[in-house]
Amino acid sequence: MKNKFLITLMILIMISCQNKDKTDSGNVVKTIAEDTLTKTVAGAADLSDAPPRDDKAVEMIRKQLSILLKKDLPAMTKDDRFFYYEAFDLNNDKKNEYFVGFSNSYFCGSGGCSGYILNNDGSVINRFTVTDFPIFVTTSVTEKFYDLKMQSGGNSHLIKMKNGKYPSNPSVQEVWNGDISKEKTKVLDVNSKRLKKYSF
């Protein structure tokens, strides 16, 4: 009888401990969730690991492409109608400019591919042609905009802003003989598979 009592008491203690653990872990999860929500609302949460999303930029680019390519759209297939983009502040005004590139047969040929650089408001800085991706942003500046290095025809070319525009055909610009891999920033690295493809 005494043994049965002890066994029953031990079972009750174990059940009580298990319920307490469940309650505690539930409270811990609830506390973490509330803390994260509070920090997010206050703007203090660390979201550095969250993938960047800029739906507003995608919609702006789609709208601009429908205007810029209005005459081309009837000749394009569904597979031709996609783009990649990457944001970069080219003139340190705290507003991103947008590199927009394509990688299909409508926009690409033996010399490379076409694309655009758009201002933050969607207006065109310039259209570029015969370019192999990625594009490199250098640390040198011309007319308040970073110089670019674009690859075309197997050569790297230094692209500098002139009268508010980058040259559209990199293959006719100054050939760069330095080590391009030492440049710090790559944009439109479409072969890396990290950029998302968007339809327009």
Rank of each mutant, 00 (worst) to 15 (best):
M1D: 09
K2D: 13
N3F: 09
N3C: 03
F5H: 07
L6Y: 11
I11P: 02
I13L: 15
I13H: 00
I13E: 06
M14W: 04
K22G: 04
K22P: 00
T23H: 01
S25M: 12
V28L: 05
V28P: 00
T31E: 09
A33T: 13
A33K: 14
E34Q: 11
T40C: 08
V41M: 13
A44V: 07
A45N: 12
A45P: 03
S48I: 03
A50V: 13
P52K: 12
D55E: 12
K56R: 09
E59F: 03
E59V: 11
M60P: 05
Q64I: 07
L65V: 10
L65N: 13
S66W: 04
I67P: 01
K70T: 10
K71Y: 07
T77Q: 15
R81D: 01
R81F: 05
Y84Q: 08
Y84H: 08
F88P: 09
F88G: 09
D93C: 07
K94D: 14
K94R: 13
N96C: 09
N96A: 11
E97Y: 07
G101Q: 09
S105T: 15
Y106N: 05
C108G: 02
G109A: 09
S110G: 10
G112A: 04
C113V: 11
G115L: 06
G115K: 06
G115A: 09
Y116N: 06
N119L: 06
N120H: 10
G122N: 10
V124I: 14
R127M: 13
F128L: 02
D132N: 14
P134G: 05
I135L: 04
V137Q: 07
T139V: 07
T142F: 05
K144E: 12
K144G: 03
K144T: 13
F145I: 02
Y146D: 01
D147V: 06
K149E: 10
K149W: 00
K149L: 15
M150V: 08
M150T: 06
Q151P: 00
S152W: 01
G153N: 12
N155A: 02
S156Y: 15
S156V: 14
K160R: 14
G164Y: 01
G164L: 10
G164A: 06
S168E: 09
N169K: 03
E174D: 02
W176I: 01
N177G: 10
S181P: 02
E183M: 11
K184N: 10
K184T: 08
K186T: 15
S192Q: 04
K193T: 08
K196S: 14
S199G: 11
S199Y: 13
